[in-house]
Design a binder for these strands. Sequence first.
DNA 1: TATTGTTATACTCTATAACTATA
DNA 2: TATAGTTATAGAGTATAACAATA
Lengths: 138, 138
Amino acid sequence: MEDDDLGALLARVTRRVIDEERPLLADQGLSMWGYIVLSSLARAPAQTQLALARSIGYDKTRLITLLDGLEAERLLSRTPDPEDRRARVVRLTPEGEARHNAARRAIRRMERRLLAGLDPADRATLRRVLAELAGPAS
Amino acid sequence: MEDDDLGALLARVTRRVIDEERPLLADQGLSMWGYIVLSSLARAPAQTQLALARSIGYDKTRLITLLDGLEAERLLSRTPDPEDRRARVVRLTPEGEARHNAARRAIRRMERRLLAGLDPADRATLRRVLAELAGPAS
DNA sequence: TATTGTTATACTCTATAACTATA
DNA sequence: TATAGTTATAGAGTATAACAATA
C-alpha cells in the first residue's frame, strides 16, 4: 500500500486539531479567526488593519466585521494613528489579553493530551520541523 | 517570544502545501476534492457512494455533482451493484488511473522540493508522526 | 495618484430537507 | 421502516467592486 500524500496527511491532522480547538474557543466566546486575531495582537499591536489582515492571511474586508465584534466585546481597541490619520492602530485591551490567555491555556492543555502518546524527541522534532516549513513567523 | 500553537503551525504548513498543489492539479484538470476522490478509488473501489463520502470526509450530496463531473470525463464509472440495486459501485477507469498517477507524480515532485532542506531523519520522523496523529488510514 | 478603512454585492462552498427507488 | 442516490434550497463563508477620507 502506497503512502499518503504529505498534503493529505497534513490536512487530516490539521482538521483533527481544529475540531478539538473549536469547542474550547466557543467556551471563551471566540471564533477561530477571532482567536487568530487576538493571538497576533498578543505578539504585537497592528499599525494598520491592512497589515493585520496580511499578517494573518485574512481578507481585509472580512476583517472589518470581525474587529467590530471583538471591539464591541472590549477585547481590542482601534485608535486613529496621529501620524497617518487614515490608519487605525489595533491593540489588545487588558480584557482581550486575559481572554486570549484563557483560550490559549485550554488549547495548550488539549495539545498536550493529543501529543501525549508520542516520544518526547518526536514531539520536539515535529514542532521544530513544522516551524521550519511554516516559514518566517507571521 | 512564545511558541506558536500547534494548530496554527499545522494550518500554516497545510495551507502552504495546498497552495502549491492547486496549480499542479489544475494542470491535470482536477480540483482538490476531485483528486481526493481519485486517490481514494486508487486505493480501492467504493462499494457505495455513501461509503466513499464518509471515507474522504465529504458531504454525500456534494459528492454527486463531483462524481458527475469525473464520470463525464470518463475518469471513473458508476455501475449498479447487482446484489443491492440501490447502490452504485464507483471505480477508476484506466484513464482515471492514468490521470491520478500523473497528478500524483507532480505532487510528489513538489513535496520533495518542499522538504529538500530538511535533514533526512527529520523528514522520516515528520511523516511517521503525522501518520500516527492522523489516526487509522482513511 | 495611491492607500486605509468601509460598505454593498456577487459568488462559491457547504449544510439541510425532501424526494425516488430499492431493501 | 431504513438506506442509497439524487435534487432543490437556504445558509455561511469568501471574493470583488466601489466609495470616502487621507496621504
